[in-house]
């Protein structure tokens, strides 16, 4: 049974995702919190009634991609690892031109990320200043809204620049036409023919997202049920936000990385939030909530999960908390939907 979202959030309970983000796939996307200390994906897969083989994507683990025995044991069903990390390494090995083009593109992406980070410093500082300033609401609120609008402009600009880099890479390099890449893509499609459910593990989110994009997984995932956790869950959403409030270096300003695959739009998921964020700091929580609107920031505790289907996000378990505009953390009971 679905429950309405508790009051206190900026959104309206039960509001469907904006039509521009309407789901285009026919499957269900399950976004899970970290699994290492409280594994739940096995139970989730069983609850979904899955009987057949499961496709595994563990590219975020990089060199450890194939060390998936523990995961297989937990799933308890036949599974085939799609080896996205290893496949792309093979492409690099067999096609030096791909390696060179990719390296150049990644270098540009890194430079853009660095510039984005620098621009964020002042914008984040201005937002925090406005949020901490006290004045009559009619005076201060428009200033706060404008400061946050300036921040989201920087976010949108960065995402657009990164997307343009990807498009240029596609247009100039035509990866689909290169035999080394086309062969890998065809093999993956063939493997997935017998697979209804794909499990995507966390790890290095940029590496994972890269491999998913380069090997053209989106259309293959869009027609299947996907269970993804941590970085895997982040990659399924529309926008990937990197976050840490207390890093050993730097200011701890959350920064946009890239668009995700957009299979679960309208949410920004934050795994490990209780470890990485100062969740008792209402100013920070509220700023993050308002920054990603109209999407909803969701903190996913270990083992918790939400289900994205038919344009709605539903809490599938306890441990899901939504960021409200006023800085409150609102626990979503299982069944509550956005």
């Amino acid at each position: 049974m679905r429950c309405p979202l508790p009051p206190g959030l900026g959104g309206i309970p039960g509001i469907p995702v904006p039509t521009s983000h309407a789901l285009t796939h026919t499957g269900t996307i399950v976004l899970c919190g970290p699994q290492r200390l409280r594994p739940t994906v096995g139970a989730i897969v069983r609850d979904l009634g899955v009987k057949g083989p499961i496709g595994l994507i563990t590219a975020g683990w990089q060199e450890r991609e194939t060390e998936d025995e523990e995961l297989r044991g937990h799933l308890g069903l036949p599974a085939v690892n799609l080896r996205l990390y290893g496949r792309w390494e093979e492409v690099f090995h067999n096609d030096p031109e791909v390696f060179e083009m990719h390296r150049r593109r990644q270098d540009h992406v890194r430079q853009l990320q660095h510039l984005h980070r620098r621009r964020l410093r002042r914008a984040m500082s201005a937002c925090r200043d406005m949020l901490q300033s006290e004045a009559e609401p009619w005076l201060i609120e428009p200033e706060r809204a404008d400061a946050i609008a300036a921040l989201t402009t920087i976010d949108d600009h960065h995402l657009a620049r990164v997307k343009a880099l990807h498009l240029r890479f596609e247009a100039e390099f035509k990866p689909a036409e290169r035999p080394s890449i086309a062969a890998q893509r065809a093999e993956i499609a063939e493997v997935l023919q017998d697979v209804d459910v794909v499990a995507i593990a966390g790890g290095h989110v940029a590496v994972l997202l890269n491999r998913l994009r380069l090997l053209a997984l989106r259309p293959l995932l869009a027609t299947r049920t996907v269970v993804a956790w941590s970085a895997g869950a982040m990659a399924m959403t529309d926008r990937v936000l990197l976050f840490h409030d207390s890093p050993p270096q730097g200011a701890g300003d959350a920064e946009m990385l890239d668009h995700g695959l957009g299979l679960a739009p309208a949410v920004v998921v934050l795994p490990h939030a209780h470890r990485r964020l100062r969740l008792d700091d209402r100013g920070r929580v509220g700023l993050m909530a308002r920054r990603v609107r109209p999407a909803q920031c969701l903190a996913l505790a270990d083992g918790s999960y939400v289900i994205a289907e038919q344009g709605r996000i539903t809490a599938g378990s306890e441990g899901v908390r939504a960021f409200a505009d006023d800085g409150a953390l609102v626990a979503l009971p299982a069944g509550a939907f956005q």
Partner: peptide, 18 residues
Amino acid sequence: MREGLSWLYPGHLWMTYE
């Protein structure tokens, strides 16, 4: 040690979500 080591050999803190 945290500040020194993370400056000299920074990890992939911002990118890794296991």
